[in-house]
Nucleic acid binder design. Structure first.
Lengths: 244, 244
DNA sequence: TCAAAAGTGTTTAGCGTACACCCATGG
DNA sequence: CCATGGGTGTACGCTAAACACTTTTGA
């Protein structure tokens, strides 16, 4: 069996995770405060080096667990894009494979220890440049948000932001937060429920809220992503975002 | 300034290029025949190791030039996805960043020498499994074709398969080849020409062909990709592919 | 004059949008 | 009873699809 070329260049490889959720009707991203150089004290995307014997997805899940304390992947994880290896890290060339996580508002580890502290931050504030992100993470975040926006149009992944069971209004709030628009509740209801293979009625209802109780839905079985595999199901017709 | 962790794992990184074009009304992919182990004699995507001091896009362009003889990027190049590093290469863990090139039917280097020989192959034949590709290149090809198909719907990149100037019928042939469908010439003509910011009439006409001469168009300035940057312009309304 | 391909006009059916309206609960 | 939000019905305008028809060339 052949071997690698002798003068072969090798690169450190990291995974970064852009974890998005909807909190208080606003899109939020999970950021950590860096405790070590470079960029010590700055906000950054959670992530870290890929270890020997690891796949990219595995590394992303491990890093997420280490920095937030989640045991399982709390939503939908997919690869976003790779960046580098040039000019990203003052220590040298590093290739990073960015990942996108769409998840409900899960609690993050708030260890009072010296562990890196993760926290949800409104995407709008971060992109407005109030807090500069480490490395090229601002650019990665921009790409991630744009990907998330278009994903909602033609895939059932909006439901990844909700819990196991949700109302149509909660799902609509997700779309409104991610797209930054207002949607007609009545037309949205029809489009969402009328889309074959998207939602499943659980038969249960909300109770205790103001107004008429809402039916609880779950993501249809055929629209759920199977263990890290990409969601093949497509929204047909798509839920188009209102174009400017 | 901080340094990398001492026990840091480093990986060889390759770029692979899925170069697609339309030849004889069929989608084709550029493949090389491997002259060295592993997978010697098998068909593979063009590509190779990323060198020190190189960005991913640069490496893709260099490898394409080395293996096909093209001097400039002959079409639209964009990053597809990364694969690995586990279980892809019998020599060890290798991360690959796959790229997608949509280009007109450019001539490939047919050196009679011992250089790797590149050739256009119909995608349908390759995916039918008549010729097994090296590494995980069959899977990469599947992902690339699916990406190309959806790109045509909402981006002006169909024109990347045509030359500088083209007729509406040539552009329609691209869509038909990539989607594997037939489109109504008259409705397609209206959709394509009626899309603001997509096509520009050159004022010139074809001549010499059978039938009425056709107007020659070029891609509108605002729809051209600026030096490796992603095409931001979006087809509005999209050219939807007929769904089953 | 005919064949072939380009391009335009017209009809129809379906969908997105807007919005009136009714339903079911909590206070 | 009223406010609040859930859910349905309906009218209108736009667009995709189908296809008849005209235009302009080569043979």
């Amino acid at each position: 069996m052949a071997d690698f070329p002798s003068a072969l260049q090798r690169f450190p490889v990291t995974v970064d995770i852009v974890a998005l959720t909807v909190r208080d009707d606003v899109l939020n991203v999970l950021l950590i405060t860096r405790l070590i150089e470079p960029f010590r004290g700055r906000l950054a995307l959670p992530g870290g080096f890929v270890l020997a014997g690891e796949g990219l997805g595995e590394a992303a899940i491990r890093e997420l667990a280490e920095e937030t304390g989640v045991e399982q992947v709390p939503g939908h994880l997919e690869q976003l894009q790779s960046y580098g290896p040039q000019g990203r890290d003052p220590r040298g060339d590093v290739l990073t494979v960015a990942h996108l996580l769409l998840a409900p508002d899960f609690p993050v580890l708030s260890a009072g220890s010296d562990a890196e502290q993760a926290a949800w931050c409104p995407v709008g504030d971060v992109l407005a440049g109030e807090r500069h992100l480490a490395f090229d993470h601002a650019r990665i975040l921009v790409d991630a948000v744009e990907r998330a926006r278009s994903k909602l149009e033609y895939s059932p992944l909006g439901a990844a932001f909700c819990g196991e069971e949700f109302t149509i209004a909660q799902l609509r709030a997700v779309y409104e937060a991610v797209w930054g628009t207002r949607l007609d509740p009545r037309n949205f209801h029809r489009k969402a429920t009328g889309n074959p293979g998207f939602l499943e009625d659980t038969g249960r209802m909300t109770t205790g809220d103001a107004g008429r109780p809402a039916a609880l839905f779950r993501l249809a079985a055929e629209a759920r992503s199977a263990a890290g595999e990409p969601v093949r199901a497509v929204l047909n017709p798509p839920l188009m975002r209102p174009h400017s």
